[in-house]
């Protein structure tokens, strides 16, 4: 059983946002609200662009946590984790208490401002491919495994260290 969990973790694909490429355009929010609700309204998006002036921009959505706090927090079992690790909200059971919202470490669980029902990214389960990723104009968003994300980060870190070393060498010479 333990082994199986580890395998799944290794293969778990999530939406990753590259902070260097993300410029805060919010197109992912538009695409999401259109895909999920057929309207243009960023407040109905399941992905959220955070801008912290003056430089920081990052889009954030469900991280598919292991043993998700949102599921644990729900008193009515409306927030469920499916076998593909995405979260599903049973709208009949949701009482709009917002505990899942409070529990989410990333603030990506929200209540619909009109209906009061919880909603969260489902990775476009029915389409099979997250639409925000598909339409991100700068390819800042990607749908990859955590492993892959980590490998790329290592590569980037090494690159920048080598570059620093190189330029340091050149300056000393």
């Amino acid at each position: 059983m333990a082994l199986k969990t580890k395998m799944t973790e290794r293969l778990k694909k999530i939406i990753v946002c590259n902070v260097d490429k993300c410029n805060g355009c919010q197109i992912c929010e538009f695409v999401c609200s259109f895909t999920k609700e057929k309207v243009f309204n960023s407040r109905k998006s399941r992905i959220f662009v955070v801008r912290i002036e003056p430089f920081l921009n990052l889009a954030l959505t469900c991280k598919k946590c292991d043993d998700p706090p949102c599921v644990r927090a729900c008193p009515t079992e409306a927030v469920q984790r499916l076998s593909d690790e995405t979260i599903k909200i049973d709208e009949e059971k949701c009482i709009g208490c917002g505990w899942c919202v409070e529990a989410c470490e990333f603030g990506v669980m929200r209540l619909n401002l009109e209906t009061g029902i919880a909603f969260v990214c489902d990775y476009c389960r029915d389409i099979g491919e997250p639409q925000c990723v598909k339409y991100c104009p700068k390819d800042a968003l990607r749908y990859i495994t955590i492993e892959q994300a980590a490998r790329e980060l290592s590569k980037k870190a090494v690159k920048s260290i080598v570059q620093e070393l190189l330029s340091a060498c050149i300056t000393t010479i």
Binding site: C25, F55, K138
Partner: peptide, 19 residues
């Protein structure tokens, strides 16, 4: 140039923020 940012709903992103 430290960061290039975009206006809402813009796929160009032209705003060159200097530091």
């Amino acid at each position: 140039v430290r960061k290039i940012i975009a206006c809402t709903n813009c796929a160009i992103a032209c705003d060159h923020v200097n530091e």
